[in-house]
Amino acid sequence: MTKTTMEIETSAELLENDILPKCREIHTNPDAQTLTAHKTPKALKTPNAQKSPAQWAYERIIMYIQNFEAQLDNDHEVGLGLAGGNTGVIKIEGLGYYDPDIVTYYGIDNSGARTQLIQHVSQLNVTLVASPKHSDQPEPTRIGFQLATALDNDADVTT
């Protein structure tokens, strides 16, 4: 006989759990790596009511980048394709936000020019792209891991 227990939440716990981040993904490939397969950094466990839209978007983008990079081979890095513009793809070298509503991406475009995209959270529309790493690099750069580690440590990764 299996013993079951019932947990009762206080009204405060119910309210907090209602505003904590939720994520759901469905894929046609049963082997697809989902965002929820990764350990959630400490910063993402904070109720979103305590965050600006910019900070909230920034933290979730980091998780998507990290998950995308986990699926790449050693010859590719994450690039950022921007919808609705002719910027093309940039190799992501940094990500930041400016409260209350700006997210910014730092990187290098296909021609090697330094690039910074400043985007309002209401216009957030990003495509992650597998970009070949530079041939002189022994290993691809994995910025998603660095950013997620900083989120877990409550470090300011925007500086």
Rank of each mutant, 00 (worst) to 15 (best):
D152E: 03
D101K: 13
D31C: 04
E7A: 04
T2C: 00
E93A: 09
N86H: 15
D18P: 04
G84L: 00
M6D: 07
D136Y: 06
E13Y: 03
V129P: 09
L117Y: 09
N110H: 10
P132L: 03
E77I: 03
E59K: 00
L80P: 14
I8M: 12
L44P: 03
K22F: 10
D75G: 07
R142T: 04
L124C: 01
E59R: 01
E13A: 01
G81W: 04
R114E: 13
W56P: 04
H76E: 09
I102Q: 05
A83K: 08
W56T: 10
V121G: 07
T34M: 14
E13G: 03
I143K: 10
T141D: 11
N110Q: 15
R60M: 01
M63F: 05
G144M: 09
A43F: 01
I26T: 11
N48Y: 12
W56K: 09
T5E: 13
C23T: 15
N125R: 14
E13R: 00
H76C: 05
S122E: 13
N110R: 15
S122A: 12
Q119A: 11
G84M: 05
V157Q: 11
P132M: 11
D101G: 12
D99I: 01
A113E: 15
G112A: 01
V157I: 10
Y58F: 08
G94M: 13
G81L: 05
L80I: 15
G88P: 07
A57C: 12
D109G: 04
N67S: 03
A12V: 01
T127H: 10
H120K: 15
L124R: 06
I19Q: 11
G144E: 00
M6N: 05
G85N: 11
D136V: 09
K91G: 11
E59C: 01
L15S: 10
T149V: 10
K45I: 02
Q55N: 08
N48V: 14
T159W: 07
R142P: 12
P100W: 00
L128I: 02
E77D: 10
K39L: 13
L80V: 13
V129E: 14
S52M: 00
Q55D: 06
K45S: 15
T2W: 07
T4P: 12
E59A: 08
I19E: 10
A57V: 02
A148Q: 02
N125E: 14
A150C: 06
E77S: 11
A57D: 14
T87V: 14
A155K: 12
V89M: 11
P140E: 01
L128V: 02
D73Q: 02
F68H: 01
Q33S: 02
A54V: 02
N86S: 11
G81V: 01
G107C: 12
D75V: 02
N153W: 03
L95H: 07
T127Y: 14
